[in-house]
Design a protein around this nucleic acid. Sequence first.
DNA 1: TAGATTGTTAATCGATTAACAATC
DNA 2: TAGATTGTTAATCGATTAACAATC
Lengths: 212, 212
Amino acid sequence: MEERQISKAVIKRLPRYYRYLEEILNNGIERISSGELSSKMQVTASQIRQDLNNFGGFGQQGYGYNVKYLYDEIGKILGVHQIHPMIIIGGGNFGHALANYDFEKNGFVTKAIFDVRPELEGTFIRGIPVLMMNQLEDFISRETVEIAVLTLPKSQVAEAAQRLTRCGIKALWNFAHLDLDVPEDVVVENVHLVDSLMQLSYRISNSEEEQI
Amino acid sequence: MEERQISKAVIKRLPRYYRYLEEILNNGIERISSGELSSKMQVTASQIRQDLNNFGGFGQQGYGYNVKYLYDEIGKILGVHQIHPMIIIGGGNFGHALANYDFEKNGFVTKAIFDVRPELEGTFIRGIPVLMMNQLEDFISRETVEIAVLTLPKSQVAEAAQRLTRCGIKALWNFAHLDLDVPEDVVVENVHLVDSLMQLSYRISNSEEEQI
DNA sequence: TAGATTGTTAATCGATTAACAATC
DNA sequence: TAGATTGTTAATCGATTAACAATC
C-alpha cells in the first residue's frame, strides 16, 4: 500500500527528534524552524526537513514547525500513543532492572516476568508478577502480548525465542549477546551491550586521529 | 599519522565479526573464506573483504582467512586484549545489573560503583565496592580509570558527566535518556534504551510493508 | 507586500556491491 | 600447474547536503 520504504537511518533518528522536541516543549517553546532545531541537535536543517517529509508536511512555509504538533505526529509515527504489552523473559539482574524502568509513559507496559527459578514463583517486581517459564504458552494464549524482552543467558535464548515465536509473538527486544534466528515476519531489535562497549574501546584507542 | 579514517559503519560491524569468529573458532574450524562467512552472517563477501582490508590484509589468496588469526587481529583492533578499568556512576537497578555482568573477559573491569545513598556505603556488589559520590574525584586521582558508565537518573547525569570530564575521564558509556555535552576529546557511547524500544515499536506497526 | 522558511528537486558525497587481476 | 580466493579498483546504489521555487 505504502509506496516508499523509509530507510533505517531515518527511523533511527526519529526517537532523537522526539526526545529533543519533548524538551523544547517543556521549555514552553511553541514554534521552531528546522534551522533552530538543527543547531540544537547538531544535524543539518536539510536532513531534518528531508526526514520529516518522508511522513508528510508537518511544517509551514515562513513559520517553521509547531512544536506540540510535530512532537505528537512523531509520537504517532513511533507508535508511542498505543499500549504495547510486554513480557520479560529472564528475571536476573537485567530483567529486574528493566522491570523497574519507567517505559510506561511511552506505552510500553510490562505484564509479567518469566524465570525458571522456583524461589521466584509468586514474587512481584514493582507489582509485576514473576511467573515460571512453564506457564509461558498458557499466559500468552490468555493475555495480549506484543513484545517479549529477552534477558536470558546466551545458552537459553535461542530456545526461548523459538517458543515465543511459535505462540505468535511478533516482536523481540533482545539483550543476549547473540543474533536470533527467527521467522521473517518477526521483528527483532538488538541491544548488544558488549558490542557497544567494544565500539567505545575502539574509539578510545583511536580518538587522537578522530579529531582531524 | 593514520592516513585513512575508518567509517563508523565499519567499526559498528567489527564486534559482530568478532562474535561470529569466536563461535566458529569454538566449533573447531580453522579456516574460513569470505564467502562462507558471508552466508553465515548474512552480509556480502565483498563487504567482509572491504571491511577487513581497512586494517590490513588478514587473508591469503586461494586459502581464505585463518580463523584464530583473524579473531585475534580483530580483537586487537577493538582493544579487547587490554585492560579497561571502569567505574559505574549510579548504583540503582541498572548500575547493579551492569556490575554483575561479565565484561571482564573482554578486558572491561569494574573498579567501583558510585552512589549518593548513604545506606549503600561500604557495601559490595560481586566484590566491587560501592563508594559515595563525594569520593569520586579522590578515587579517580588515586586509581586508573578509563571508562565511566553513567546509569544515573536523567536529572543528575549532566552534572556527573561534567565532574568526570573535569578530572580527566575520556570515555563515557551513557545509559541516560539524554545526549551529553562534553569536550570534544571525550568519547561518548550511548545506549538509549527508550530509543531502541521506539524503533521496535515503529517496526511493529510497519512490518507488513517491510516484507516487500 | 516583504521576509522567512518550508517542501522538494538536483548535486554531492560516501558506502556497498561487483568485477577481476594478483597470487597463494 | 590449476583452482580458489583474496585484495583492490571500478560501478552502483543510497543517503546527505545544497539550492531554490513555492507559499505562508
